[in-house]
């Protein structure tokens, strides 16, 4: 009998661990192939600021074409919004004017995906973080959580969408490159697996140490991102947030989420015990007197 009980608890324990671990593994691509998904490498030393990527992006996603007069100028910050998923900005730096492309970073373990309660925001196995309208309820918690402020919301629509770069997920499925990478005339944008891109980035820095600032933005930021950046100057000069934590953002809520099952088991037992212990308060007092 006692063995039976023990094996029962064992089975219970195994089930519990499996349930807990199961949900954890689903949350992000497994650690083994951490770099085997697609990403992009952007080399700001090569970008000419032609905005070809902006036009290609708008065309690929049915968004309004950029205004010809709205060109990147140092001193003015252009932002992605609900009508443009990527923008080029110009920065005045110690090494002259430098262009920087901005779009979703496609984090390895994205905050927006962990935030989403309907799995509308989704990290695909291939790497892109994409948005699925049939699941999204428009709570905008992804926007609150994203450390890069990437998801944008159509505030003036009764059927609003979240707009953000999805690394041209539809094109990837057809075996094509993302529109911006294909369009770029100076090959400032390289498409490939994250591992290839990291190797390539390190090679470029090693081959031309004078040309590059010795840092790959995105290698460790927010736990690593699918989009990687090379720059000739320190990244602060290009408006990057260099104080972002190096571990993933979803890790910040893990402690809380892991406490939930414990509370769910402990509290009812404790409360019931307290209730039983105090049930006959009046009677006991009478007996004492």
């Amino acid at each position: 009998m006692s063995i039976d009980r023990r094996s029962f608890f064992k089975a219970l324990g195994v089930t519990g661990v499996t349930l807990a671990a199961g949900s954890r593994l689903n949350a992000s691509p497994s650690a083994a192939n951490k770099d085997e998904f697609y990403g992009m490498l952007y080399d700001s030393t090569r970008c000419a600021g032609c905005q070809g990527c902006e036009f290609a992006c708008a065309d690929a996603h049915g968004l309004p074409a950029p205004n010809f007069e709205d060109v990147p100028v140092a001193g003015t910050l252009r932002k992605t919004d609900e009508t443009r998923r990527t923008v080029i900005n110009a920065y005045q730096t110690s090494k002259g004017d430098i262009y920087v492309k901005r779009q979703c970073m496609h984090c390895n373990d994205p905050a927006c995906t962990a935030a989403c309660l309907t799995k509308a925001m989704f990290k695909n196995e291939q790497g892109p973080v994409s948005w699925r309208g049939n699941k999204c309820m428009g709570c905008r918690y992804c926007m609150v959580s994203c450390p890069f402020d990437i998801p944008k919301f159509e505030y003036h629509s009764p059927n609003p969408k979240i707009e953000k770069c999805d690394m041209c997920f539809d094109r990837l499925k057809e075996g094509l490159k993302p529109a911006c990478a294909e369009q770029c005339p100076t090959e400032a944008i390289v498409f490939g697996t994250r591992r290839e891109l990291l190797t390539e980035a390190k090679k470029r820095i090693n081959d031309n140490p004078g040309q590059y600032h010795d840092y790959i933005y995105g290698e460790h930021e927010a736990g690593g991102t699918g989009f990687l950046y090379l720059s000739p100057v320190p990244f602060e000069e290009l408006g990057f947030n260099t104080t972002l934590q190096k571990s993933s953002y979803p890790a910040l809520t893990k402690g809380f989420l892991y406490a939930v099952p414990s509370i769910f088991v402990l509290w009812p037992a404790l409360l019931l015990g307290l209730q039983q212990a105090t049930k006959n308060n009046d009677k006991n007092e009478e007996e004492h007197e």
Binding site: S23, N26, A27, T113, A114, A115, C116, L117, T118, K119, A120, G133, N134, K135, C136, M137, G138, C139, R140, Y141, F153, E154, N159, P160, P250, T253, F256, L257, V260
Partner: peptide, 24 residues
Amino acid sequence: LGRPWNVINPIIGNSFGTSSVLFL
């Protein structure tokens, strides 16, 4: 909610975003 008609998604169906605090 921008898309309130989908509010039912985290309750039914296969869209359980269990890693989300908001889901809880």
